[in-house]
Amino acid sequence: MSALTHLQLLEAESIHIIREVMAEMERPVMLYSAGKDSAVMLHLARKAAYPSSPPFPLLHVDTGWKFREMYEHRDRAAAQGGMELIVHRNPDAVERNIDPFVHGSSLHTMLWKTEGLKQALSAHRFDSAFGGARRDEEASRAKERIFSFRSSSHAWDPKNQRPELWRLFNTRISPGESVRVFPLSNWTELDVWQYIEAEEIEVVPLYFAAARPTVERDGQLFVIDDDRFPLAKGERPVERRVRFRTLGCYPLTAAIESDATTVAEVVDEMRRSPSSERSGRLIDRDEAASMERKKRQGYF
């Protein structure tokens, strides 16, 4: 169609999607996790609204178990964008002191993330929520629409999705229903990194290699981010040069050994890497088709 590069076309498509929400939805919100996809999505939202500020707040559904650097980055990024930041922690999970080490990843994710998200969306009566998920991340994402409708109980029905043609999005919902919007649907992990490099977007330093205290569990490396990490008897943290491909709750996110300290080196490493990004995400592997099930229950 034009001489635009693939990044320019992806950017334009995402801005178009964000603007459709800005124009047609009454109470949008942008989910923000402080990860690289969130960083790119926030950057695109600022571009979509420029010279205005994005006319919606950021929502961080917090678990209390993110890496410390993520919290610092989150507060800085929200301030830079001139945007309101809503932080929600499921009071039920707070009260029960839900801990992934003690209660396991399933309950941890269900209470902090799935339930927490539903609570926050309902409490603020948001009718639309942007998420940074990409179709290349996970199999059930490949079949999810850019505008993904949720019932009043936030459930996803994969068999009853609205067809999406051209650049046309049917944004209409009934009272109580909501829509999750994925502006990065057609981006790959490589696109995200190339865009971060081209646009000089600041991301959490955890994505770059550094010497960090680690322990090995089931063949995967975990970084000890604070003193809540229970060490086995005789277990000692070992300093390794590691970085993260994906960031979530630190007890559930595995690091990889790496020497990549710049975006260019990260991109180069990724091109040679034979593993997918989500292989470091423990919650995806609890059981077969676990993401699809979580989404039907209301997970992002």
């Binding site: 693939h6 179709r135 290349d136 199999a139 059930s140 490949a142 079949k143 994969p158 068999k159 999705q161 649907s185 057609n186 790959t188 490589l190 696109d191 077969a288 088709a289 699809e292 099930r293």
Partner: peptide, 25 residues
Amino acid sequence: ALEAEREQGITIDVAYRFFATPARK
């Protein structure tokens, strides 16, 4: 990709796949 599809041996939906060469995505 969907559990429901695998169980029933049918495909419900259009899926989007991504690949790239140095020249083109």
